[in-house]
Design a protein around this nucleic acid. Structure first.
Lengths: 289, 289
DNA sequence: GCTGTTCTGCACAAGACTTTGCAGAAAGAA
DNA sequence: TTCTTTCTGCAAAGTCTTGTGCAGAACAGC
């Protein structure tokens, strides 16, 4: 039997976040919400019958509660709960719950876990959101990056193109970069991935793109550089590596996050783009066992 | 011939535990198990159709795989997977009061934190150690990778070269790849970074390199493929992405780990290499504010 | 205490997911 | 190579889950 703390301000602050809008709920609905709040695992994988049992109501009430909260139905609400619960766990899970096996690989992984966690704080959600908007509306997207830090840029440009966005990776410096950036117009976007001491030509590229009216999105670890100043949207990531090198892990993950943002913003477009591309791949017969 | 350090099936030592009995599986079944192993969230919450899509098989094969493993069916297997996954990640996680800032970026970071944590289990330290030895003694190192998964390969090759190792990234397919791999000799090394369904030409490249007597080091997410079989040293990483794409974050971190391993093994050489390179960079006067 | 409104539970309908029969494809044996 | 066996994909059948109309119960206002 579940003690219900008489509803109001349900799900505030806990793992539910704002998944449950603060509406006026009926008694049965409040019991459902309480049950969900207190049983995160059950909430994220149980079916209506199990939830109803826990809440002590009929299964129809579970279904109707989901609808009352603004979701299409139980499955829709559960999808949301699931995502939040898993993210919550990843946020709060202890770093190492097992016997340590120290090895360079293990150190590197642990180190990058820390980088990713720090990035949750350093990346400004508003800047990310703005960046997604700029990308979604861009007529043309150029992605630049140099050396080992081009890793994120390569992946980002490739996946953007896969999803049907007009994106290209530009990894060359000098005249190539100049002509690529020179062709940018208002409504276009330049995405710069760079860590460590700023490279002159990337900074200049960003400044030129900005002058040309293009939107400059920069993923970097330093915020007081001319590169950062030339950017419209700045996404800061930590980059400490396990030895002498900077780690691009966080910047890569941020790149995936931007793609997820695009998918959330215009799912149809992304889905269609991916389908087109993967069909093409199948026809090329590239795969084996 | 070189010994293969694949043997002890480290992939099953991870979050799956002994949920998957070590039976002889058919090709499609092995693909299903691989897909489940590297996509824990999908495995825990997806339906047969989604799993089948990821594994590149028909949904019936997913159902039949569950039965072949001794479960009553997919739902039965999934219940088991879910329980193990949640135990693996949640364990003692307390419900903290941290304010959630949910955004696609945040989700992606949390997701990749999970991938890195899982990678601590899936990467076999012995295989990694052997790989480091092979790299340290190689007369020549070719690093290959394609598409967005080339991110790790690009970074790895670049940093190897920076540290003074005879490494090159080879991102082109066809005749270019053929001639590059064709030049490998005993004592050389081929490093393959690849996720997702194996590409024919990468598999063939690995097989040819192996035949030529070179050491093949592979960082990938699937262990039942011909690519994995052709490898001397296999480093398995999880690769579940936040949306439709696989995440190369873990493979990138493993690349850094290999570099750290090299540094631990021969610090002088790496230090000298980096100093030489960065001095050169300074002379080129590439940096700004 | 009466009456009108809202809510809940039941039972069934609609829908989604999983399993299986079958036939063709692939792999292995002779 | 040919024959036999095993495996896989398709599509239909079977099972389970979710949603809704209806009728009775609870509640609030008078």
């Amino acid at each position: 039997m579940d003690e219900t703390t008489e509803s109001q301000t349900p799900g505030n602050g806990g793992w539910l976040g704002d998944a449950i809008p603060a509406l006026k709920l009926t008694k049965a609905q409040a019991r459902v919400v309480d049950a969900l709040t207190v049983n995160p695992k059950l909430a994220s994988y149980g079916d209506v019958t199990e939830i109803a049992l826990k809440a002590g109501v009929n299964s129809s009430s579970v279904s109707r509660t989901a609808q009352a909260l603004g979701y299409r139905g139980w499955s829709d609400l559960q999808r949301e709960l699931r995502a939040r619960y898993l993210v919550h766990i990843a946020d709060t899970a202890p770093l190492s719950h097992r016997v340590e096996v120290r090895s360079p690989i293990h150190d590197s992984l642990a180190h990058d876990v820390e980088n990713l966690r720090l990035a949750m704080d350093t990346v400004d959600p508003q800047a990310a959101d703005d960046a997604v908007t700029a990308l979604a509306t861009a007529r043309r997207i150029i992605v630049v990056g140099q050396g080992s830090y081009s890793a994120s840029a390569v992946a980002f440009a490739h996946l953007l193109a896969t999803a049907g966005y007009p994106a290209n990776f530009e990894g060359r410096a000098g005249v190539h970069l100049a002509s690529a950036v020179g062709s940018l117009r208002p409504g276009d976007a330049l995405v710069v991935f760079h860590l460590w001491r700023p490279l002159k030509h990337l900074t200049i590229a960003a400044q030129l793109a900005r002058q040309a009216g293009a939107t400059v999105i920069t993923v970097t670890d330093l915020k007081s550089t001319d590169l950062a100043k030339a950017s419209n949207h700045l996404l800061l990531v930590p980059s400490e590596g396990v030895y002498a090198f900077q780690s691009a892990t966080a910047s890569l993950s941020v790149a995936y996050g931007l793609l997820a943002g695009l998918e959330a913003r215009e799912p149809e477009r992304v889905k269609a783009g991916i389908e087109r591309t993967s069909q093409f791949w199948d026809e090329l017969d590239l795969y084996t066992n």
